[in-house]
């Protein structure tokens, strides 16, 4: 057995647990590659698939339960914190909220397959006051499906992964540098995406003071309230003259609006 594989076998389950936990807590370190490698090692009889799955599911449940409790305690403020640390500009709270409202706790079954949604769904379940046992049940099933898919992929492609491990082994300590470099590049890329996303948003956004001045000056734009129904139920107010609509129904409300007319959207 090569040294690299020897270490992977010795600390494999702990590594899977740590990696999955970090990813679920919101750190930008992908866990799927680790699960795939663990699956390949399990296929070769060097690791137990059951142990890997138990480690991954336990890490998911612990991390997700922590977010669930924080969501229950601090509500929607937790979601903003997650968006800050996850470096995923695509995980807009509103989109996640809409998905969650549509599917409820069942969305936890596939949440881990969708970047961004995975970390945001548990605190959302807490903020919307779902029961802990039901949450853990759906979250656990989702974790089994997700980790199972990773391990199954590793088992299916074990020969290719074995060759990759062997190639890394030949690199010696450079293999560690290589893996760290890849991780650093992923984090850097996500950070760069995020900076660009926020720069674009800053340029495009209108401030509340600007909007107020436009309304007072008789140059009111078309204002669309695109908050989700549950948020609107909690706070049944709107900006004066705003059109209350769902994303899918915007067409019904803007049919007569000329294309040059300014449109301002707001959510929570």
């Amino acid at each position: 057995m090569t040294t690299l594989v020897h270490y992977l076998v010795q600390y494999g389950v702990a590594l899977v647990f740590l990696n999955v936990f970090l990813e679920q807590i919101g750190a930008p370190v992908p866990a799927l590659p680790t699960l795939i490698v663990a699956g390949a090692l399990a296929r070769d009889g060097k690791l137990s698939s059951t142990h890997v799955l138990v480690g991954a599911v336990a890490a998911c449940l612990i991390a997700d339960w922590l977010w669930f409790v924080l969501g229950r305690r601090y509500g929607y403020r937790v979601l903003r914190t997650i968006c800050r640390i996850s470096l995923s500009p695509d995980s807009c709270v509103r989109d996640t909220e809409a998905n969650f409202e549509r599917w409820g706790l069942k969305s936890l079954l596939f949440a881990k397959f969708i970047p961004g949604f995975s970390t945001v769904a548990p605190p959302l379940a807490g903020a919307t006051r779902h029961r802990t046992l039901q949450f853990l049940l759906y979250d656990g099933l989702g974790a089994i499906l997700w980790a199972g898919a990773g391990v199954a992929a590793g088992r299916a492609f074990h020969r290719a992964i074995d060759r990759l491990l062997l190639a890394l082994e030949r690199l010696g300590w450079w293999a560690v540098v290589f893996v760290i470099l890849i991780l650093a590049l992923i984090v850097l890329f996500k950070w760069w995406q995020r900076i660009g996303f926020y720069r674009q948003l800053r340029m495009a956004r209108i401030t509340v003071d600007e909007l107020r001045a436009m309304i007072d000056g008789g140059q009111a734009p078309v204002v669309l309230d695109v908050r989700t129904p549950s948020v609107r139920k909690r706070d049944p107010r709107r900006i004066p003259t705003a059109i209350v609509t769902e994303s899918a129904e915007i067409d019904l409300h803007i049919g007569d609006v000329p294309p040059h007319k300014e449109i301002v959207l707001y959510c929570t």
Partner: peptide
């Protein structure tokens, strides 16, 4: 989506509804 439909000036409200309320501006019932 709106820009794809030909609308040229589409801007999200910075701070959202919470920002509007925090600024003390008026609201009306939905």
């Amino acid at each position: 989506m709106l820009m794809e439909k030909g609308f040229t000036v589409v801007r999200p409200l910075a701070g959202g509804f919470d920002g509007w309320v925090e600024a003390g501006y008026p609201t009306e019932p939905v």
